[in-house]
Design a protein around this nucleic acid. Structure first.
Length: 205
DNA sequence: CATAGGATCGCCT
DNA sequence: GGCGATCCTATGT
């Protein structure tokens, strides 16, 4: 299946990209273990003008520095001291847009996902939260900065990348809501920047 | 240096 | 619906 390339991520409309990521396949390979899932939920974070963004008002720190890199870079950070949350940086270098991936439907490598999560089987709601999917796919905050537009060449190389599996998502299958857990962002908390792909959501496996 | 709090989850009631 | 886990980051002294 075709790899999603730089041209997809470096576009300027982070909201359009967040919608466009629904139905795409998110794939990881670590220690020769390949696992993947179809993206069913995303949130757009619009950089320096968006109070909900870690880069609001142009803030830069060791953690957020990767947000200013070129679109197609991974931004993974630790939340509540417990969960690694996976984001995709978008736009050109210097513009800190990002998209939080909030849900997937498990596809390949279910045995590895079960192993990582300590579950016996893949049931409904197995990977329907941002912290759950990173755990299932083995994504850790140490993976921040990875280039998502490069697929590992060898079986034992690590990588995170996305592929277009030809899943066409209709407008009426997308539910649009405000983002979760950003109450502190004032008016920006009301922005309709969360996208949920309904046809596939909550089907378990 | 100290400390509050967070783009969450799972278990409890 | 409530709460504790758990630790890094940002901010302030």
């Amino acid at each position: 299946m075709p790899l999603i390339t730089k041209e997809f991520y470096t576009r300027t409309d982070v909201v359009a990209i967040a919608r466009g990521l629904l139905g795409k396949l998110l794939i990881t390979q670590f220690e020769a273990k390949l696992s993947s899932g179809i993206i069913t939920e995303t949130e757009a974070y619009e950089g320096i003008t968006d109070r909900a963004s870690h880069a609001y008002s142009g803030r830069r720190s060791e953690r957020t520095e990767v947000m200013y890199r070129i679109g197609g870079t991974a931004y993974v950070y630790l939340c509540y001291g417990v969960h690694s949350l996976f984001n995709i940086v978008t736009n050109v270098e210097g513009i800190p847009h990002a998209i939080l991936i909030r849900g997937i439907i498990p596809m390949d490598g279910s045995q590895y996902m079960l192993e990582r999560t300590g579950k016996k089987e893949i049931l409904k709601n197995f990977s329907d939260g941002p912290g759950k999917l990173t755990k299932a796919l083995g994504i850790h905050y140490s993976h921040t900065g990875l280039n998502l537009t490069k697929k590992p060449y060898k079986k034992y190389d690590s990588g995170i990348w996305l592929e277009d599996i030809g899943c066409s998502v209709k407008e009426e299958e997308i539910k649009v809501t405000p983002r979760i857990g950003v109450e502190y962002a004032g008016e920006d908390a009301l922005r309709p920047y969360r996208f949920v792909y309904h046809r596939l959501q909550d089907t378990g496996n």
